[in-house]
Every structure is written in C-alpha cells, then in structure tokens.
C-alpha cells in the first residue's frame, strides 16, 4: 500500500510547518500564550484566504464577563464561531450554554491530536440551538493524561460520543457513566486516531504476530 506510506509521512507531526496556527488558537507554541496574531487585522481579510475574526456577541461578552480569562479566544472563521475555553471552566461554560443560552442540542463531541504541542489534545464540542438556529464550537486543550469533564449530565448524546473519543484518542472524561471502548474491541492496544499511531506500524505488528513475517508491505 504505497499510498499509506506516502500519506503517513506527509502530515508529519514533527514538521513545524504544518501547524494549524490560525484556527487553533495556540498552534505549536505553548498554549499559555493568549490568542495570537490573527485577531489583529479587523479590516477585510486578504483575498488569499479568510482569517478568523473576533467573535463578538452579547453571549460571548457575558461569558467573558463571568469566566474572565477562562475564555481564551472567541473567533469566527468562515462564518463559524468557536471559542477556546480553559479546561477548568469548560464544564461551567457548557452548562451555561446549555441552561441559559438554549444550546440544547449537542451536535458532536470530538477531538484532535497535535502531538507537537504541550497540550496535545483539543476536545471540541459542537453545539446547536434550535431556537436561535445557531451553531458554535467550544474547544478545550488537554495535556497528555488529563481528563476532560464529561458532558453527559447536560446532554445524553455525549455518552457514546465521548466513548468514541476515548476509544480513538484515549482522552478520559470525568464523570462519564460508562467509559469503555465503543467501536474497537476491548482488548485493542493504543488509540488509533492519535497521530503517533501509524497504520503501517499497526499492520506490521499484526503481520509479525499472525503471519510470522517481517512486513506485509
């Protein structure tokens, strides 16, 4: 499978060039730094591509007022709003969004792995409000081994979604009623959607154990 060989090397986690620097707030730099440059130019974005704009609304203002620096960033990219929230307050933010701001539908809960960062995991909750017809994303950053708060008390949907995130990334959710693997078998080793979990490595391990040959490639 030459594709995979090729494909696997390309988004190499070691390459500093491939950092989602503008969208993900803290990109490669240690996440302690507060929202970097992209918020700076308010005038219309340059033709080459859109850049995140600051997301200003009453709701965000209210949240910022309540949580202060807990809300690290609130931006709009391509018409889609998101905010990055400190892990410590993310449950309260979600609760406020759920209870006060009518975001009663948890569309999705997922994660992304940036192995080169100090806080390599980004957990993303996509929320939707039926009454406001508005969709937002809430993100938080986690270090290796750190657990995210579970959103199950707020939305029952989160149950399986968080199990899937755990299954694929190994991110634990505090307060989840039944955190087990969901798609993969119980005895699976590793968390396949982490960037350091390569398909080839998985293949070769299997081939070595089951077929007794060095490599199936």
């Amino acid at each position: 499978m030459p594709d995979e060989t090729k494909g696997n090397t390309s988004p190499n986690p070691d390459q500093p060039a491939s950092q989602p620097s503008s969208s993900s707030p803290s990109s490669a730099k240690p996440p302690v730094t507060v929202p970097p440059k992209p918020t700076a130019p308010p005038p219309p974005p340059k033709p080459p591509g859109p850049v995140p704009m600051p997301w200003e609304s009453d709701m965000v203002a209210g949240l910022k007022q309540r949580f202060g620096s807990g809300i690290r960033e609130a931006s709009t990219y391509l018409g889609q709003s998101y905010m990055v929230v400190e892990r410590a307050v993310v449950y309260d933010v979600l609760q406020e969004l759920h209870d006060e701001q009518e975001f009663n539908y948890l569309v999705d809960c997922t994660a992304t792995h940036y192995p080169q960062r100090a806080q390599p995991f980004e957990v993303i909750w996509i929320l939707y409000s039926f009454n406001r017809n508005e969709r937002i994303r809430v993100k938080t950053l986690l270090a290796e081994g750190e657990a995210a708060p579970s959103a199950v008390p707020l939305w029952s949907t989160a149950n399986w979604l968080e199990r899937e995130v755990y299954d694929m990334f190994g991110i634990r959710f505090d307060g989840h009623p039944d955190l087990r693997r969901i798609l993969l078998p119980e005895d699976w080793k590793g968390f396949p959607l982490r960037k350091d979990h390569s398909i080839i490595q998985q293949d070769q391990e299997w081939v070595q154990i089951n077929l007794g040959i060095e490599s199936g490639q």
Binding site: G7, S10, P11, A17, S18, Q19, P20, S23, S24, V107, D108, T110, T112, H113, I124, I126, L193
Partner: peptide, 14 residues
C-alpha cells in the same frame, strides 16, 4: 456533519 481540520497541506489533518 463533517468536521475538517486543515493544516494547509494536501491532506486533511483530521
């Protein structure tokens, strides 16, 4: 829904 993260390369980051 599709949630796509791009790192500017030819392949989706996630």
């Amino acid at each position: 829904g599709y949630f796509i993260v791009s790192d500017g390369s030819t392949q989706p980051y996630r």
